[in-house]
Each structure stands twice: as C-alpha cells, then as structure tokens.
Design a protein around this nucleic acid. Structure first.
Lengths: 338, 338
DNA sequence: TTGTATGCGTTATCAC
DNA sequence: GTGATAACGCATACAA
C-alpha cells in the first residue's frame, strides 16, 4: 500500500506538504516546482489517499446511503438514477442497499451511526413510524423519499393526489362511469393520496363512487392480480380501472386477459409510473409519468444541504415535486355503450 | 459523538478493556462483572464503534462493492439479491453502485483502491478488457460476474451455451424449423455463448442455419424491436425466435404484435432470464430461468475467500454455475404447417 | 484480569 | 514555503 509518506520520501518533502498539495488549499502557498514534483510522484507511485484515514480526520465520508425495499422494483431505478447523478454533481458517492440488509444490532441505520456515510435517503415505506422517529432523535442527516411520516418534515414526495385526480379525469373524459380503483396500502402516503385524488376526481364529476369499485391492494403483481379478479366477479364489472402503481397494473392486466377479456376493448386500464417497459407491454400501458428522477435529485440536493449544515432535518420543510404527466397509450379507450 | 473513551470513563475502566469486550476476543480474560458493566454502559450511551477508525486499524471494511451497468435492468436484481444474502451470511455489507458513478480520477475501481471496500464484484460487461487487466495488476480482490475476459480467471459465469442449446431444442421439439435468433453482442461472453449453443442445437438436429435468421443485437428493448422488424421483413420470416435476453424479448414481442401477428400462433418466442414480470406479459413468456441468484451467491462466496486470503485472484479457477431451466409458458407453441 | 503505550494514514495547527 | 507535531477513534502487544 502506497501512503502519503512514500510520496513524501520520493519527492523529498514532508508528508504534510503532499497533503496540502493534494487538498488544493485555496491558499496555495507552495512553490510551483515542489507542487509539480509532488504531483508527478503521486502519479508515478499511483498514490491514492486512504479513505478511512481521511475520514477519521475530517469526519466526513462523502458517501450517501440509500435504502430501498428491494432491487426488483423498477420504480426505484429512476429515483436512484436521479439521486446518483445529483450526488456525483455534489461530489458524493451514492451507495444503495436493500432494507433486508440490516446492519449491526439489527439496525437499519447503522451505516449512518457508525459514520460509514454522511447522510441517508430512506426510500422504504415499510419501516415503522417509530423507527423513523428514533432515527430523527439522533440528529443525523436523512431524508424520507416518497414517504410521509407524521411529525417528520424532512421528506421529499410526489404529488400523488393530483396523479390520482388525473387518472380519474382521463378515464371519465373517455366516457367511462363505472371506474374502479385498485389502491395501494392506505398506511403508505402514496396509496392514500392517489386514492384521495381519484375520489375527488370522480366526485367532482358528479359520479357516484361505488364502494365495491375500491379494492385495497399491496404494491405487488400478485395482489393486483387478485384484486382485479375480485372486480371481474362483480355483477357489474367496471369498464375502466385505475391501478395505483406499475406492479398492480401488471397483475391486473394479466387477470383481465386470462379471463378472456380484451384491453382496452372490454376494460381500460391506466397505471402509475412510466417504467421502461410500459411501452412494450401488450397493449402498451397508459400511465402517469411521475417525476421520480427529479425526486431522486431533489432528495440528494436537500440531504447535502443538511449534511453541510446549511439546514437541518428539523428546520426543513417537506418538499413536494410536482409534475405528473399523462402518457396515453393503448390500454385506455373511449367507452362505447352497448 | 460517543467514543470508546466515554464508555470507558462511564464504566470506570480503561478504553482497551472496552475494546476487548466488544471484539469478543476468544480469550475472554475479563471478569464477568466488568464485562457486564461495560456492556450495559455501551447500551445506555448507545455507543457504536466508529467505522473509519476501526477500519484504519484493522485494515478491513467488511464491505463489498458491486458495480452494475444500471439499476433499470431487471436481470441484475436477482444477482444482487443472491449477493446481498450471501454477503450478510458472511458478515459483509454489499453496496451497489452503477458504472456511471465514477470515483476519483475517473476510475471505476477507486472505491477498492481507496480502501472503502474490501473487494469488488464487477457485473458490467461494457468495461474495456484493458481496464480489467489493469485492475488485476493491483492485486486487490475482485470477481467478474457474468463476464469473461481472456486471461482473467477470477470470474463466475453461467452456462450460457447450454441455455442457447436448450432454447433451440425446445423450439425444434415443437416442430419449428425456421428458427431465428436475435443474439446479444458477440464481444460479451453471454451473447456469443448463447449463440454458440443455439447454433450447435440447430445443427445437431440436422437443420440448416440460415444466415439471415441470425440478427446481432444489443441487450436493449429498442434493439430487440429493430432486429425483430428486420426478421419480419424477410421473404420467409421465421416461425420461432430465440431472443438472447429479456430486454430483447420485450422489444421483439412488441414488434411482432405491432405488425398484427399473434404470439404464439404466428410466431413463437422464447427468451432468457425468468424475471418477475415474465409470467404477466401478454402472452406469458417462455424463458430459460438462469441461476442468477446462485451466481450472486457464488460470486460473494468466492470473493470473500479471496479477501480472507484463502485464495487469490490469480490462483483461482473460473467458476461456472450450471442449471438453466426451461419455463414453458404461452409464448411458444407447436408449429402447425399451413 | 486490567492498564499502558503505540501506531494505523491523514490533516490541521503550529513553528521555523 | 516548508517541516514538525498532534490528534482523529480504535485495537493490540506488552507490561503490570
């Protein structure tokens, strides 16, 4: 292992000088010759500062952690992408791990407490509120992404309510009146807010919202499939369905098609989250594109501010990223009465 | 920040004793009383050892890095999952980042060189061979996952050749003879090996492999879509297509359906990689399930051995995980002559 | 069984 | 401009 001492010896200077050169102190009180000699030696020896030693001294890692539920959920890839790019811009590294990967003491946040990372993005909805509140006590920088917890203001979320409203509006504009909604879990902000927006949309149009058309579901393919099957069993099945996320959409589409119905001729389906494969589904899925990438960016931006002490978890205001966009494809179609 | 000194003072002992208690030296030459008192104090103060300090001393981070091409590729989620679980079993943390996230000096491997991680899994096929070889010179533990580089033996790969063979066999058993293959890039081991297996399968059956039925593609939806369209333009289009991975499958399915053909009635399609949404595609996709999870596990297992010095990059033999499994769904069907 | 001393590699604060 | 020194928090060899 090449250390700063090796470089110093080779260049004929004291280690502290090497350190100063490499850390580009604005006050560059260093002779050009020595600076260049050192830089060349660094290059020659392939010296790279030891991360742990530097961190121990500076007490910062320039690393940001991000916990996600699991890597198979395509929704997170956009958030991560935005977060990674923003982090790079701010000279931080983003390290992603799943919630299944508990640290020491079965603690989800041990990386933060141990000082492996300078801040944490929490993009997991399954954590208990009390865990989050305990974390908040520690006064380490963290941001809840796409999640709302009562009393915790350091979050970045999307405008899910408007998204639900838009979905309802789209289906109604196509002439549908028997519109069902397979919701996400109400305990999770996104699930409830999308439902709220949907409900408002329907009621604003003066349409009665039938209780049997609201099916609570988990954000999984299987659950979407199951709930869609329940809807199909109704005496008067819906002619259009709003699925609360992409996993539910996939399950619902499968259920409809398995029963021999056609999308969109028999049933229209609109989903949320315009993931990469939405256009190549059969039929291509009408969705609402949510600004996931932008949410990832915003979360990192705010987190870095908190890390640098420009603001803190406690005095920040929750951030909402607006701008859902309706992407009309072939899974929704005008309702034609028989 | 609570340090080991705080604990020591509170418990009325010397810091070194605290250290010994926490590091559970097999030689537990510590009075039960003191040990318990210390443990209680640790609990009370919420002391957590500082990661950087410990790392600086021990020269190990208990962290494993993993570079992937991007987070939107569903194939990687299984590999990561296996890797995460195995890492946890071995008391390591797995930190995932994308190849877009270069470190200092535009170096993909800086995390390894800086000592942020003890070893690295490289699951990216786009790196230049020379970059990999440079890394190999450094003699830091790393494993190539699902990638083969000439002269580098520290890799874990799948039996892609057999997978290609199985795909060809399945389609031929259904009576197809006009079978096309949209391949992956030949520069990447997987692409070429799947092609090789496919070719052998076809030729073993005494069927002539038509040159126009082999379409080289990138592992993307768009490329799969484009190449499938080329196949459809042929005078005698294939009745069955083997798509070299899931992205190509998605693109190919879309192209077929957009032209008004039916899967599998007009054209059968078989893909590789049984991702989570394969069963809910329309039609559900016949695939070959590759042991991605197991590959992730095996890669970590081997990497940890290298880290612990039981073996090294250079003296290890390449590992191949066998066991592709044909999952027949509705996208392939018996060929019925007109 | 516990305390003392030392050093991991780096940077910040001195003095020269 | 540069060199010397101390300290970050921890673990370990050695002394007691």
């Amino acid at each position: 292992m090449i250390t700063i001492k090796d470089v110093a010896r080779e260049a004929g200077v004291h280690p502290s000088v090497v350190s100063r050169v490499l850390n580009k102190d604005v006050t560059l009180k260093i002779k050009k010759e020595t600076r260049e000699r050192i830089l060349i030696t660094v290059e020659e020896l392939g010296y790279v500062p030891n991360h742990s030693a530097r961190n121990l001294k500076r007490n910062e890692t320039m690393m940001i952690g991000m916990i996600i539920p699991d890597f198979s959920n395509p929704v997170y890839s956009s958030i991560i992408h935005g977060a990674e790019n923003k982090a790079a811009e701010e000279c931080y590294n983003l390290l992603v791990y799943s919630k299944d990967q508990k640290g020491i003491g079965n603690n989800y946040f041990s990386h933060l407490i141990e000082g492996r990372i300078d801040g944490l993005l929490i993009a997991v909805s399954e954590f208990e509120d009390k865990d989050i509140k305990e974390l908040a006590e520690l006064d380490k920088p963290f941001i809840l992404v796409n999640r709302f917890v009562e009393g915790i203001e350091n979050h970045v979320v999307l405008d899910d309510e408007t998204a639900g409203y838009m979905a309802a509006k789209h289906l109604m504009e196509l002439g549908h009146t028997n519109i069902a909604h397979i919701t996400g879990p109400f305990e999770i902000g996104t699930g409830f807010n999308r439902y709220k927006g949907f409900k408002n949309g329907i009621e604003d149009a003066g349409i009665e919202l039938k209780a049997e058309y609201i099916r609570k579901s988990a954000y999984t393919i299987q659950s979407g499939y199951d709930e869609m099957n329940q809807l199909l069993k109704l005496e008067e099945p819906p002619t259009a369905v709003f699925a609360a996320n992409i996993m539910i959409s996939l399950g619902a589409m499968r259920a409809v098609q398995e029963k021999g119905h056609e999308i969109p001729n028999d049933i229209s389906i609109i989903g949320i989250h315009d993931v990469a494969f939405a256009p190549v589904l059969n039929p291509p899925l009408t969705t609402i594109r949510m600004p996931l990438y932008e949410m990832g960016e915003a979360a990192v931006k705010k987190l870095v501010e908190n890390i640098k002490g420009k603001s803190s978890n406690k005095d920040m205001e929750g951030i909402m990223i607006e701008g859902g966009e309706l992407i009309v494809r072939d899974s929704t179609k005008e309702f034609i009465p028989e």
